[in-house]
């Protein structure tokens, strides 16, 4: 079980949270022409690194806020958490 530090509520158990995927995925700019390949990449293509990974988590049973987590995917060590508006 992980202990995750929500930037708003403090350290809480993993079962209050929901995983939200890679935080580096960037949606193609609105209003601009997007190729099928770029759109497909945005929807489906994700890095799957062994090691440090920047992720989104949702404190679904607490403050219901999304935030960023820098986690090691092999050891599950959490290095840092930050609000969406802040840098990791």
């Amino acid at each position: 079980m992980l202990e995750i530090k929500c930037p708003y509520c403090g350290s809480r158990s993993q079962n209050e949270f929901s995983y939200g995927g890679d935080s580096n995925a960037k949606r193609p700019e609105l209003g601009k022409e997007v190729s099928d390949k770029d759109w497909d990449n945005f929807i489906y293509l994700r890095k799957n690194p062994r090691g440090k990974h920047s992720e989104l988590w949702h404190h679904v049973a607490g403050c219901r806020q999304w935030f960023k987590v820098l986690r090691d995917t092999s050891t599950h060590e959490i290095f840092k958490t930050a609000k969406l508006t802040d840098e990791l």
């Binding site: 809480r12 158990s13 079962n15 209050e16 049973a61 607490g62 403050c63």
Partner: peptide, 21 residues
């Protein structure tokens, strides 16, 4: 899952109880 021993009077926490929010 929260540390109930540390919770102070007149404080609150959104959490789960046996999976119920």
């Amino acid at each position: 899952p929260i540390n109930i021993n540390e919770i102070q009077v007149n404080s609150c926490a959104g959490t789960v109880f046996n999976g119920i929010t």
